[in-house]
Design a protein around this nucleic acid. Structure first.
Lengths: 207, 207
DNA sequence: GCTGAACAAAGAGGCGATTAATGTCCAAAA
DNA sequence: TTTTGGACATTAATCGCCTCTTTGTTCAGC
């Protein structure tokens, strides 16, 4: 695990993945085990350099047997990736939902709020050089979420499939750039302010 | 030079940099030497894996003495970075220029056209894992170029400095995402079509 | 400003030995 | 069915030591 990149996990489908994909039968025991492992890793990488965290550390912190770990995940990176993907999946879903009813929190605001709560983790990823991989991953998830949303827009019915995907891609890019701008300056503005800013810029004219 | 990252070049100011910065007295000999070294490197990395290209290779190809090389550049990476920066500087300048007069080629179109001519290089950077660094670098240059342009917009006179920089950042992000989308699909659409697409999306409503 | 040659310093690669960590397997418990 | 603990084979990091390549510096002279 020397050349560990967050994005380099197309190795093989692996044993752990099967559980992740089967959304049926979310056995409570399984859910808890995975949850404990994930939290343990996330905690640990905020305590010491990511490469110094061993599988054994995670096992101890999570109080989970070694064999159980490998039953769920291919390796440490797979676990981290799975955590990040879970998070991004949430964000993507948020972006995909139309909020016509004004009683919902705006998706961009919610997105900034959620990520603003994880600035420590952001720092860790940044320091370990995995931030670029994370953003690349995020670009995919955000694009898909946004594309889904755009598809339901009446104003864009006449637009070709390719152009829709291009637009989603560009929008995702701008959200992520804005997010990075915000985080790198210490997240000074409120999530609500960022949401309004984003709306003033592009969202309004597009969806 | 095993862990060579395009972006990791904040080591120290280095001897070579002084020539790069002094825009006065662009001595013809210096210009030619730098030009030859740059071209040699760019040629070579398209012929064999970037890490197999030695300084000696570059020297031979460029017919430049070893001491001369180190007079201009800190190391191989510095040379590559300098080439990329030169390219990005051009792009940034293009983005910063308002084209009120319709006889100019639109900046986005020109940008896509220029980069479309370097797909081989794009592939090389991608294969050597430096693409993420390149895009990160580009994000900075593009943001600055766009911010400069936005500053001259009458429609945005009332906007705060911070918001202007945020907007520029987001716009740069969307251009780059679009660019990546375009390149990764084989640059099928014409630069002109991409320009129009971009305008339909955001540019129009913003500047 | 550029050169060539000479030289010190750093680094990559090979190799055997040692140690830590990883990943697999299975019988048995929950 | 999931989880467990312990035993076990495999892998990977580390070290010392060596060799050869590449790097980066220096300087007298064009």
């Amino acid at each position: 695990m020397s050349k560990t990149e967050v994005s380099n996990s197309k190795k093989h489908v692996g044993p752990g993945r099967k559980h992740a994909r089967q959304k049926r039968q979310p056995d409570e025991r399984v859910r808890r085990t995975r949850q404990r492992l994930g939290s343990a890793l996330v905690e640990l990488i905020q305590e010491k350099p990511i490469n110094d965290v061993t599988v054994q550390d995670v096992l101890d912190r999570a109080s989970v047997g070694r064999s159980t770990f490998y039953l769920h995940y291919r390796d440490k990176d797979d676990l981290l990736l799975s955590q990040l993907e879970g998070f991004l999946e949430m964000m993507s879903t948020m972006l995909s939902i139309r909020n016509d009813q004004s009683d919902r929190v705006a998706p961009i605001e919610e997105l900034f709020a959620h990520i603003g709560n994880e600035t420590k983790l952001y720092r860790v990823l940044s320091d370990s050089g995995r931030l670029k991989d994370f953003f690349e991953l995020a670009q995919g998830y955000f694009s898909r979420g946004i594309e889904k949303r755009l598809k339901e827009s009446k104003r864009l019915k006449s637009i070709s499939r390719d152009e829709l995907s291009a637009r989603a891609c560009a929008l995702a890019g701008s959200v992520l750039s804005l997010l990075r701008w915000w985080l790198d300056r210490g997240a000074r503005e409120s999530p609500h302010a960022m949401d309004k800013l984003f709306h003033r810029m592009v969202w309004k004219g597009l969806v």
